[in-house]
């Protein structure tokens, strides 16, 4: 029940160190409030996805279809907007698309018992294909007019940050709370911790897992909405590889891929760490390939620390 604050604090310190490193090298730009705004805005899409992915990973699963779901949601959102001209309908369509894809993933992993890696690998390809089919293998262009396209806009902000970033912060708080203060959240932890024991205790394991995938789908749908909003395009080829960035954020945030452990807040900081590296690297003129190597090392370090903690706990 007790949170492991030291774990989140560890990730936070890591982020602050990386941030400080760039701040020392680029003090004039990196310490400004507009830079912080830029950083959060750039992390919003991955960050929203990571909120959902945390639930799946804590439940002992993984969702490789995240990027495809983001793309499909942006396409569906764009098509619905073009037909109805209603931003509300587009928002609803994005979220619903995500929830449906997530539920499908959950039902398939529970019924096929084939392991979530392979099941969501399949749905990753299938959903990407559906997105391309719906969009007729083109991008769905919208007019780009109205509040639908201001979620992560550079100019339209509301108390420093754009509304999409505020949504991220809101859901971050809500889902971090829900992990501890709802029975669904505790069941997700229980199933990821020891599925057989949860089953023995009468927890409906399949339903809990499906729920976790559906929650994740909802957030991938929202991430798709952000993508649509930012580019004003429903792009079936967008977010390619974003599933791995999202998983990386969750893992850097202290989640264990064997389930039972992970933190929504940690995952958000994980997303910030990755954005900080790419932003700071770009501002310092560090080549992209060096940034990638560094991000990779950060992920390996996070996993190594996780392993080390587990082995230390076992010897105690």
């Amino acid at each position: 029940m007790k949170k492991k604050p030291n774990q989140i604090i560890g990730v936070l310190i890591a982020w602050l160190l990386i941030y400080a490193f760039f701040a020392i090298n680029k003090p004039q730009t990196f310490l400004s409030i507009s830079n912080v705004e830029l950083l959060l805005r750039q992390s919003t899409m991955i960050g929203i996805g990571a909120v959902g992915m945390t639930y799946v990973i804590v439940a002992g699963g993984i969702d490789l279809s995240a990027g495809s779901v983001i793309a499909l949601s942006s396409v569906v959102g764009g098509l619905v907007f073009n037909r109805t001209q209603s931003p509300w309908a587009a928002v609803f369509a994005c979220a619903l698309t995500g929830v449906l894809c997530g539920t499908l993933n959950g039902v398939l992993t529970s019924k096929l018992k084939a392991g979530p890696f392979i099941v969501t690998l399949g749905s990753m390809l299938a959903i990407r294909g559906i997105a391309k089919g719906l969009a007729d293998e083109k991008t769905v262009s919208t007019g780009g007019e109205g509040w639908l396209f201001e979620f992560i806009s550079k100019t339209k902000s509301w108390f420093v940050f754009p509304i999409g970033t505020w949504m991220w912060i809101f859901f971050l708080g809500l889902m971090a709370w829900a992990m501890i203060y709802t029975n669904f959240g505790r069941n997700v932890v229980a199933v990821g911790s020891n599925e057989s024991a949860a089953k023995l205790c009468g927890i409906a394991v399949d339903r809990v897992k499906t729920g976790a995938y559906a929650v994740a789908g909802f957030f991938f749908g929202l991430a798709g909405l952000m993508s649509l909003s930012r580019t004003s395009l429903g792009d079936p080829t967008s977010a390619n590889g974003d599933e791995l960035r999202i998983i990386a954020a969750v893992v850097i945030g202290g989640a264990s891929l064997s389930g039972g452990e992970g933190s929504v807040i940690g995952a958000a900081i994980g997303a910030l760490i990755m954005a900080t590296i790419s932003m700071g690297g770009t501002q310092m003129g560090v080549a992209n390939w060096k940034q990638e190597i560094f991000t990779g090392i950060i992920i390996l370090a996070a996993v190594a620390i996780d392993r080390w903690r587990i082995s230390r706990r076992q010897t105690n």
Binding site: T182, N183, F184, G185, A190, N194, S196, A197, G260
Partner: peptide, 27 residues
């Protein structure tokens, strides 16, 4: 270890796991 109890979770949570009802959990 296999399914008797969930080792990483707390004594309190293991004890109350089968009796969870409703939406809200009060730690």
């Amino acid at each position: 270890k296999l399914d008797g109890i969930t080792l990483p979770l707390s004594i309190a949570e293991n004890t109350t796991m089968p009796t969870r009802r409703g939406l809200i959990n009060s730690p």
